[in-house]
Design a protein around this nucleic acid. Sequence first.
DNA 1: TATTCGCAAGTTTTT
DNA 2: CTTGCGAATA
Length: 824
Amino acid sequence: MNASDYGDDFFSQAEQTADLLAGLNPQQRRAAEILDGPLMILAGPGSGKTRVITHRVANMIHNGIRADQIVALTFTNKAAEELKNRIATLVPGSYVWAGTFHRFCSRLLRQYAPLVGLSENFSILDMDDVSRLLANAWAVADIADEFVSRNAVQSEISRAKNAIVTAEEYQGRAGNAVGKVTQQVYPIYQRMLLECNSVDFDDLLMWTAIILQQNEELRQSLDQRFAYIMVDEYQDTNLAQYAIVRSLSNDLPNLAITGDPDQSIYGWRGASIQNILGFEQDYPAVEVVRLEQNYRSTKAILSIADHLISNNKQRKAKKLISDSDQGDPVRSMVFPSPQEEADFIARDVSQLIADGIWEPKDIAIFYRANWLSRNLEHAFNGLGIPFQLVNGFEFYQRKEVKDLIAYLRLLNNPRNDLALERVINSPSRKIGKVTLDRLKASASGKRISLLEACRICGLDGSLPARSATSVARFVSEIDRLSELQTNSIQEYLQSVLQVTHYRAVLVAEDTEQAIERIANVDELISAAREFDNQHPEDGGLQAYLETAALVSDTDKLVDGDLSLKMMTMHAAKGLEFPCVYIVGLEEGILPHERSRESAAQIEEERRLFFVGITRAERQLTLCRCEGRMKRGQFWVSPPSSFLMELPSDELDIYDRKRGSKQIADSYNNDFSVGEDWIDSECGGATISIDDHSSLSKPSPKSSSFDVQALDATDVELDENQRDRSPKNFAKPTVPKPKGKLGSIVPKITTAAAMFGIGSKKGPAGAGDGSSEFRSGMMVEHPEYGPGKITSLSGAGAKEMATVQFYSVGEKKFRVKFSTLKPLG
DNA sequence: TATTCGCAAGTTTTT
DNA sequence: CTTGCGAATA
């Protein structure tokens, strides 16, 4: 049914629709008008995708489609919340189900759990439980291979499940050690999961897909029931999700997907970019709408993004069009160490805030991995800038929070042995490893749950009397708690605290840590109260536990939170901020060390960077360090190869002058960079600062300023700032290289070595003459710094290399006589 | 037999 | 720099 089906109320309907869609551009409008049949919306970053989806849903409802026939599957709960709210604003009183795939599957699976051997009160294990259970399975399987890591097997199992390969079906590839071990462990692990009536994250998808595959009648009825399905971020769906969506959109193929292949960043989790690239083959009748108009970023930012992503081969060419102004050029900065990087950003940010340019909430900092936030936290704390870390598990990862939730899980699902294991001795009941092992042995011998084993341990002599008494006390506490009849989570938690004396024990401890834990317990309780308020009817233990299990980082972002945000680029997907900093743009971090194996992985890293860049609305600063501490030592980091793919003439480059005598000498001596800075007067050092223009015509004449170490932009931005923040005068926290650093980092003789890359061979061309260069290779030039070989031609003495430099753009060299060095 | 202390090893991204 | 495991001690 759509607007062209003239009904009695045609006029009013048409008017309403016109009204509703009035604010959309032609493409957006078209997408919102197609209600039936398969639809693919290719939406570039900032193209108003959410706006289109919400208006489309509103349009559906205006056209008489029942809200309960519509399902919107999103990637995060936050995205789902936003959809729901905005739809509710457009169509007051409507209720459209929106949620993550995992939540949707969890809901379905609860209804049909017996079909796969579960009961409806199954638990969803967190990552911690999963690795403990896997360790158990590992022990049972008695794995002898010490070269295969548990992590490798864990992700192999995960990959199998994402591809709907069950434990029975799984076959490791011949000659693959991980596969071989997985084949042994996976079935045991899976059996254990069933025994404790639990699923892991991947099971939610896999079981749902299997149920739909194996029960045609059920599939048909669900296909009818969910007549209209929308999938957001389709480029990040994996095979299991794909199978689920297809099963539910077969008889009624009213399936709308939105996505952007350039933002596919979950390949490592089994997402298949093929799902979106092949959508047109799946549904030949598909209507394709492209949203290419960007409403978010300045031209300067978009151009950077565009240059970067055009280096990917596996993509559908797409332009980002913008009507916005040019905006400030994107800054590219380099710092000696992460401490200085963080210091600079903290001061830069406080300046922006002091000048009233941005508020803290307008600013975000992105990085590749969570640990990269440490120095930033430090620096921000030092300047008293409010920030929020958006790595959301953190709270649920805390021991006390996990303990309390584990109690609830055990109450909800008495067969959850992992939850029992977690709580049986916290607070301490003097039940240790030996006792627990005996209980486990008893349980597996009798094929009963751990709780049952606990219950009978006093009778069957499986434990000495003293331990049995402790265990009996534990059982009676659990029994008392299970008698509780309430829907209020707050009440549940408080009962747990009371019956187990959990809080009393903490209070008695009276240490700083205990006080913090009590605070966390209180926070959990107020969160529970909040949950109780929001779910007066449909709540209950199970709903709460499900929520607790399926929260994600970004879900914790509250509208109206005024602090600055720090998060990974993965977490940043779907968000936008006026002012963005991306840190740690170094080879090995972005692209990540472990992505270097394949071109496909490198492309995914590039897309990740693309996602990061395109979050920025007005200002973007790209930062990297020349080195960082690793396992107690200072390691030099080369710049990310991605930086060299950006148009240097469009960037504002703040860089240490290459080839500057002083700097080069200090490198040459003993790699005593840190010493140099620390020893200089008031922590200062001689750094030369060059903007791009002087960099591009390198002259030996150095334009040095005596400025504080790393404080490159003080000169540029604000001379007074140093006076305002006393911290600036503190010694820079450059790690002081200790002892025999020189023996670890090779003697520095070339610019390549400056970046810490081994210079085992002599200068290129002076050696054996055979070329060690290949196209695409990272290289280093003493004068121009790092670069990337874009092409090679000729051979022998005539071999020419074209190199794209980060600093000065493209240069050509006779390979044989050049001073180019391989990098990496 | 539980707890505590010390040493060693290991660090992507997330539902 | 943190977590996890193993040995020593109470």
